[in-house]
Design a protein around this nucleic acid. Structure first.
Lengths: 128, 128
DNA sequence: CGCTTGTATAGATGATTGTCGATGCAGCTT
DNA sequence: AAGCTGCATCGACAATCATCTATACAAGCG
């Protein structure tokens, strides 16, 4: 879907990418950007959609796999998926009859890093 | 403030505490709880408040230190602080004339862990 | 081609939310 | 006690949002 003609813009290449929130005060523009992402996660249906997509085998799910899991209408699911996609949390692609969605791990990593509590600097992935 | 008579209930002791979102589908009740926390972070002013409080020397800030940093009225700041507190992200205490707020690192750690991307399991805090 | 199924868009509506000014309350100071 | 300052609460209002139904679009199939 979003990888048609546009040159795959992630909604902000690396804005607000690394420094944990608790290290230094967030700048105003960064706060606005970040708030959009958290807003996308600030709904129970979207959270479950997000988690469900990521948990699927192969890390992707057809919309048809998702709609049945919720008590809301199909257009509502479609709306929520769009919100997640606009926030840069997932991406999607049509393959024949079905449309598949998958989680963008970079976005997750960015959030996770930003929320790292004081004390732990970066996650010491190197040690592993 | 919230540590007066009540036995210091964090708004959900350890609900949704550990398994990353991308590992297994979020249950409905957990999604509802989590959504409340993300909703608290889904506003630019609250994000900056949160970051600013945490960045202060000693990890706490008086409200009087905060209001000047924003273009919104004092009642609005007070409202946002209440939202952050109700979400279990910060706590506060009156000390004489002033009220101080500080970030609750457990809440942060929980979120950070939940958002851990696929691949990294737990942050190896135990090794430390 | 026309039908059927999967998904997105459009438009409407009730609920939630961010903001404000006005006011209330708590603690200090004189 | 009286006044002042710091912060919270109240009530109102405009804006945003989650949801719905109806409809449009896309792809496969008879």
């Amino acid at each position: 879907m979003s990888k048609k003609q546009l040159p795959v813009i992630q909604p902000d290449p690396d804005a607000v990418c690394c420094t944990p929130l608790v290290r230094e005060p967030l700048r105003e523009t960064d706060a606005a950007d970040l708030a959009k992402v958290f807003k996308a996660l600030a709904d129970p249906v979207r959270l479950r959609l997000f988690s469900l997509i990521a948990s699927f085998d192969g890390g992707q799910a057809c919309v048809c796999d998702l709609t049945g899991e919720f008590d809301v209408s199909q257009p509502t699911i479609s709306h929520h998926l769009k919100v997640l996609r606009d926030a840069g949390l997932v991406d999607s692609e049509r393959r024949g009859t079905w449309v598949y969605y998958w989680v963008l791990p970079e976005a997750l990593a960015r959030l996770s890093g930003l929320l790292a509590p004081a004390g732990l600097e970066r996650v010491p992935a190197a040690r592993a």
